[in-house]
Amino acid sequence: MASARGKEQIRTWLPALGLLVLFVIVAECLLALLRVPPYVLPKPSSVAREIVRSVSGLLKDAWITSLEAVAGFALAAFAGMCLAVGFCLSKFVERAAYPLVIGAKCMPLVALAPILAIWFGGSSLAGKAMMAGFICFFPVVVNMRTGLDAIEPEALDLFRSLSASRLTVLWKLRLPSSVGYLLSALKTSSTLAVVGAVVGEFAISDRGLGYRIVQASYTGNTVAMFASVVCLGVLGVAFFGVISLVELVLLRKFRLGVGMPNSQ
């Protein structure tokens, strides 16, 4: 059983790893062959050396960006879920607030960043967390709202026939059915939270991977920029992986959201 599961894991991850290794080899060879200057596009080996050289600084800044992304993600998840439940319970609230939510989503992030910096100050985690939360709350609202309505009509009839209150229907029928949709949105939001944290750091910060990228750009150090970008990619993948693991546990062990999107 364990070896079968292990083989399944290898089959899942091997193609992606293989493609990554192939891409790195092709890029290394092409960039060397064409003699592309490192300040235009550095070779993967140069980026790897820079990562090793600056590993402690990168880890420190990655931790800062992670905190901002996680805080923003948590804020977005909580706010998004509350909004979705509110919309489900009251059509009036939904009709009034949904267009405002959509409008807020359309606001350009780079315009919002300096405003948040003014409100919260440049050093604070709060401003960057708000930025991360702002960018990733919309998928949570939309997906969970859809999930709350994705219940079987027969099940709803049964609850009503037993005189179940709206809150009981919400707690025992709608919320369990929305878990698959919610988890799908959280996976999308996990990577968006990293983007939001970095945009906040671009706008104003003195630490974090986004700040490192700005710093490297000022000094013309393209290799250092790419090292930070690679770390951001790893951070995004790790965050996505954590949410996927939570999804796996919830869907398999508790059979929540069975029959819903992404349930196995």
Binding site: P37, P38, Y39, Y218, T219, G220, N221, V223
Partner: peptide, 11 residues
């Protein structure tokens, strides 16, 4: 100063 740093990075 930026020119010096850029040169130090190979430009």
């Amino acid at each position: 100063d930026e020119l010096i740093l850029a040169r130090s990075n190979g430009m």
